[in-house]
Design a protein around this nucleic acid. Structure first.
Lengths: 136, 136
DNA sequence: TATTGTTATACTCTATAACTATA
DNA sequence: TATAGTTATAGAGTATAACAATA
């Protein structure tokens, strides 16, 4: 099998493994993958609904629903903009932040387990190669 | 930032990038990610519903729905087992196979684009490191 | 009794289209 | 008119629980 096929295959399988891991961890904390992504963004930002849609690659109506469900569960709140009354900012609550941090820590642990067989050189090479892909 | 954090971050982001790419390609062909996964398995196997659930990590009721929708679109057929009348095998149709192959080829092209900046050494290192993770 | 698969039900996620309020 | 966001609606995907058929 060619190196090209190997690379395609390995990237697809790795992505399913990582997403599956993240999805399982989210479920253990009563969250969906989408809610975890949301929390990951809100940990460092207070975006508008519009900006959230751009970050997540979702339609504005999808963002409305996502934020609705998160708000209903007390994970986020909506805060009207003071400068433009059409605009709404989304803010993570203390509870939402705590959950996001728990899932983040659990994910880091899982990655540690998954990469236990890698040498330090492997890890550096992986971070370097993946980083180059992500720049695009 | 520590190497450990880098690795966690890079794996998460890479998985979202690859899954997003695959999901977009699937959508361009009128398919969902789940249907593409299904097609990927059925290209090489004729599993029972039960086996399919294990491969995909889904409940049997979820598999029923997934196969229902694929069958309704002419991508797969159900074939009763001859040896055990409780069992159903899932078979990909010619149309389903053609679609799966189109998406697979488009994905390979996209990976080629995404990894255009990688040196041959980077690629080998990535395949090696990812392979070691996947063994687990 | 145990296993295989389906069905009923409920929820999340997503998009399109129509709408409201504001700029 | 254009933009930000919501709502109505529809469909895919998923799980739990109850069920039917077969082993």
């Amino acid at each position: 099998m060619s190196d090209r096929t190997d690379l395609v295959d390995v990237l697809a399988r790795l992505s399913f493994l990582v997403q599956g891991t993240l999805s399982d961890l989210a479920a253990e904390h009563g969250l969906s993958l989408a809610q975890v992504r949301l929390g990951g963004i809100l940990r460092d930002h207070e975006p508008t609904m519009n900006e959230l849609g751009q970050h997540l690659g979702l339609d504005k109506s999808s963002v409305s629903g996502l934020v609705d469900r998160a708000e209903r569960r007390g994970l986020v709140v909506r805060r009207p903009s003071t400068s433009d009354r059409r605009v709404v900012h989304v803010i993570i609550t203390a509870e939402g932040r705590a959950l996001a941090e728990q899932v983040g820590a659990a994910f880091a642990d899982q990655v540690e387990t998954l990469t236990a067989n890698l040498t330090a050189t492997d890890r550096r090479a992986l971070v370097r190669a993946a980083g180059r892909i992500l720049i695009t």
